[in-house]
Design a protein around this nucleic acid. Sequence first.
DNA 1: ATGTCTCTGTGCCAGAGA
Length: 258
Amino acid sequence: MRIATWNVNSIKARLPTVLEVLDAINCDVVCLQEIKCETNAFPYMELEERGWNCEVLGQKSYNGVALLSKHEIEDVTKGLPTIEDEQARYIEALILADRPIRVGGLYLPNGNPAPGQKYDYKMEWMDALEQHARALLKQDEAFVLCGDYNCIPTPEDCWDETVWQDDALALPQTRAEFRKLKYLGLADAFELTDNRAHQYTFWDYQGGAFKKDHGIRIDHLLCSPQACDRLQSVEIYRKARELEKPSDHVPVIGTFED
DNA sequence: ATGTCTCTGTGCCAGAGA
């Protein structure tokens, strides 16, 4: 069972690239963020003809999340149940593989500039996510909350801590909220299986950041204890950043025992 | 020495968001 998360930065602007990468990474489930289209404008046809079951929570212009699965899906939730949210940032479903696994795909608010209203919203959203994670943990099932967390967990997860230290992605309060999720009992799949320093999932479009490897690690898979038991490896699919018209993020893939 | 991309709309550039 291979589960990926990928912020595509508009699915309409790079559909051929998205399809190419999806073919290459050979996953069972893929959570997409920043699809930047309304639900009914999602390219269902192109994905369904490649065998994907699609669940989508879109909106105009910004944000938007989708959950793709090669297996049957049930129990779909759109939007975090713990917050009134106008923005399309969360989608969850139970994946009916031989051993079912619940998957939540999330696009956490960026929060810049901080401090300010946008950062307040980010903190509210992280708190709502923690409340939801708490409820899920009570079910004692395998689940993975994956997505663009817009959080650089530690100084080793960015190319230059001094550049990011005042950014909403790296502020102490952001890192503290991310740690809270871990203290609840969720594990960062990358940290658990690989944990090398300076392994990135995002590189800015500006200033040739990818060429210089000036990146940050902000796309994460957080696993429940039952999912950790099945976790085998994590791969950051850097190749996606080398393609024509790439997203600024690359897929992060967790492999779990079937 | 300089170098981003994508979205929208009193639209063909500019401002916002990342």
